[in-house]
Simulated assay, not measured.
Amino acid sequence: MEITTSPSTYQRATETASHIRSALPDVLQNPKVAIVCGSGLGGLAQTIDPTPKVELAYENIPNFPKSTVQGHEGKFVFGRLGPHQTPVALLVGRAHFYEGHTMDMVTFATRVCKLMGVEVIIVTNAAGGLNQNYAVGDIVCLNDHLNMAGLVGIHPLRGPNLDDFGVRFPPLSDAYDLDLRVRVHRAWKTLGLDKQKRRLHEGIYAFVAGPTYETRAECRMLRGFGADVVGMSTVPEIVVARHSGIRVLALSLVTNSAVLEAGPLGSDEALQSMTKAELDAHLGRGKANHEEVLEAGREAAKDMQALVKLIVSDLHEL
């Protein structure tokens, strides 16, 4: 049986890009850089010059998915950034697979960015730290990923290939642009961030579907596979960006440390005299929660904003 879509993703993305362009002044028509702002990182939109600046709510953009997650405002922001007035597009909030969106919709904004002329996409996210050398508040420049959902068939390129965007079997061994990663480390030192407590790492991101945080056993498995951080976004966008020929830079903010140690056994003699409240507190040590994620994002926002702003300024020659 032939698989078809109606209308096609390309047609819908073209319609959306045309609608957005109609709302933009000429100087913002073709943004060269797109920035995806993850949980708690929407403040990046404040780094854009105030004029000209256009904000479009996702709900008012045709075909666009709606973000329902706390900490994701759900708007497209267009403006110019840095001393070279680089035209940029910011996605303040994203659609997630766990919200019930299809992978096509999760990555739809990336397709629209391609049609608007974006050449580099900077993807940010909040992630759990699996690497025990990472501290809450550290920033990780991604250099590879484990697409756990994709390996079992939940893949953004599943189905007929979108030839208007890219080839059937795109390679991903070069997904994380080396030139852009070099620029990150250079910007980190230029800003003097290497002199403070917060650290910059390079590492591997494990993408899981969510929406639950991972169990202890799952965290140990992912760490054993080589993952340094884990989260519920980013990788589908990166896969589609590379399929579309967009260069990728991805930055994770470590907002909590995953619990890797095995849980306590009910047979442990030391636990026999504890009350239920004491047992709950003992089991819950290190448990992640979304408010913790947002708070860590608020604390690291200034450093992340300064880093992204300098990187974009460094890309003015595009």
Rank of each mutant, 00 (worst) to 15 (best):
residue 65 P to E: 00
residue 133 N to L: 13
residue 241 A to E: 06
residue 280 D to I: 14
residue 193 L to R: 05
residue 259 V to N: 14
residue 179 D to N: 05
residue 137 G to D: 14
residue 236 P to T: 09
residue 114 K to H: 04
residue 29 Q to T: 12
residue 95 A to H: 07
residue 226 G to H: 13
residue 264 P to V: 11
residue 255 T to P: 07
residue 83 P to K: 13
residue 218 E to Q: 09
residue 136 V to R: 11
residue 158 R to P: 01
residue 298 R to D: 15
residue 4 T to L: 09
residue 215 T to N: 14
residue 120 V to I: 13
residue 75 K to P: 04
residue 271 L to F: 02
residue 15 E to S: 13
residue 150 G to N: 01
residue 26 D to T: 07
residue 62 P to L: 07
residue 4 T to A: 03
residue 285 R to N: 14
residue 266 G to V: 03
residue 107 T to Y: 10
residue 2 E to K: 02
residue 290 H to R: 01
residue 201 H to E: 07
residue 285 R to T: 09
residue 210 G to I: 10
residue 147 N to M: 12
residue 194 D to G: 07
residue 241 A to C: 03
residue 318 L to P: 08
residue 115 L to P: 11
residue 250 A to K: 05
residue 174 D to S: 15
residue 267 S to W: 02
residue 131 N to F: 08
residue 36 V to P: 04
residue 194 D to I: 10
residue 272 Q to E: 10
residue 119 E to W: 06
residue 186 R to L: 09
residue 38 G to M: 09
residue 308 V to N: 08
residue 264 P to S: 06
residue 88 V to Y: 06
residue 65 P to V: 01
residue 9 T to D: 10
residue 40 G to Q: 00
residue 6 S to Y: 01
residue 106 V to A: 08
residue 149 A to L: 10
residue 113 C to N: 02
residue 239 V to Q: 11
residue 185 H to S: 03
residue 235 V to D: 10
residue 156 P to E: 01
residue 170 P to I: 11
residue 122 I to N: 05
residue 16 T to H: 03
residue 137 G to A: 07
residue 311 I to H: 08
residue 179 D to M: 09
residue 84 H to V: 01
residue 23 A to C: 15
residue 117 G to L: 08
residue 120 V to D: 00
residue 52 P to R: 05
residue 137 G to C: 10
residue 283 L to M: 15
residue 207 F to K: 10
residue 273 S to E: 06
residue 32 K to D: 13
residue 163 D to P: 04
residue 264 P to T: 05
residue 231 G to C: 06
residue 211 P to H: 11
residue 244 S to N: 08
residue 210 G to A: 14
residue 157 L to R: 03
residue 308 V to M: 14
residue 143 N to D: 10
residue 242 R to C: 13
residue 70 Q to R: 04
residue 245 G to R: 04
residue 247 R to L: 11
residue 27 V to Y: 09
residue 28 L to R: 03
residue 290 H to P: 05
residue 205 Y to P: 07
residue 312 V to T: 07
residue 159 G to H: 02
residue 135 A to M: 13
residue 243 H to K: 05
residue 227 A to T: 04
residue 224 G to I: 04
residue 70 Q to F: 12
residue 124 T to Y: 14
residue 78 F to E: 02
residue 16 T to W: 08
residue 172 L to V: 03
residue 154 I to P: 09
residue 11 Q to G: 08
residue 209 A to H: 12
residue 253 L to K: 02
residue 217 A to Y: 00
residue 256 N to L: 12
residue 280 D to L: 14
residue 67 S to W: 03
residue 246 I to F: 08
residue 111 R to C: 00
residue 95 A to Q: 01
